[in-house]
């Protein structure tokens, strides 16, 4: 179990809702859910969620920390924003689902080999290297995400598509060597590092007053 996970269990042991409110993007909205279920019915991948958004909200309030944070569910979000525009109380549901996914990953609770969690990480790392996405390398890292053997198989399976994309000039072999990027890579990386530090400090801030009251 990660240290951060241990610390957070200790701090919020009786209130998963408070933990979500403090640490999850837009988490302060969770208590506003009125359990109508429109979000669950509106989700294009709804049938693939073990617990659709409405249920996730209920489970957060019921303190089902482990079940929520280790769930595969929020990783099914395609960011279509159907739930947001239909929610009668205008909860930013998409962002809360992203926020739960981010938080679960930070605590090391994401299910192993969850493909979207893996892809999202590949995407972020790819983009952070040069400040712009290198689509060729993104595709290749995705093929090889499960190792070399499956990677070759996957690359061969998609070979025809790749050739067609190159022919249409919508994929460039040259991207493998260098490729597009911003000029001020170091400035961009310093900026993101700083933003991360500020956000981590923000999360730690909740330790102090609350912890002393609870303890």
């Amino acid at each position: 179990m990660s240290e951060l996970n241990k610390a957070m269990i200790e701090q919020y042991r009786n209130s998963f809702l408070s933990e979500v409110e403090a640490n999850v993007e837009e988490g302060e909205w969770v208590k506003m859910c009125m359990q109508c279920g429109v979000c669950s019915g509106s989700c294009p991948l709804g049938k693939h969620w073990a617990h659709p958004p409405q249920e996730i909200f209920m489970m957060i309030r019921a303190g089902k920390r482990e079940e929520v944070l280790t769930s595969d569910s929020m990783w099914m979000c395609t960011s279509c924003y159907n739930c947001i525009v239909r929610c009668p109380r205008q909860l930013p549901i998409t962002h809360i689902m992203h926020g739960l996914a981010t938080y679960a990953k930070k605590l090391g609770l994401t299910p192993k080999n969850q493909p979207t969690a893996k892809f999202a990480e590949i995407f972020w790392n790819n983009m952070m290297k040069k400040g712009r996405v290198n689509e060729l390398k993104l595709g290749l890292s995705l093929y090889f995400k499960d190792g070399f053997g499956p990677g070759i198989k996957e690359a061969l399976r998609n070979k025809d598509l790749g050739m067609k994309m190159m022919k249409a000039k919508r994929m460039a072999a040259g991207e493998f060597f260098g490729g597009h990027g911003v000029k001020d890579v170091s400035g961009l990386q310093k900026m993101i590092k700083k933003a991360q530090e500020l956000e981590d400090a923000r999360m730690k801030k909740f330790d102090e007053p609350e912890a002393s009251q609870d303890g």
């Binding site: 892809f119 999202a120 995407f123 983009m127 712009r132 933003a195 991360q196 923000r202």
Partner: peptide
Amino acid sequence: NCCSASIGYASGSEL
């Protein structure tokens, strides 16, 4: 630069 689209969230948190 890249906006991180709607998939960067797993590693890139809010700020």
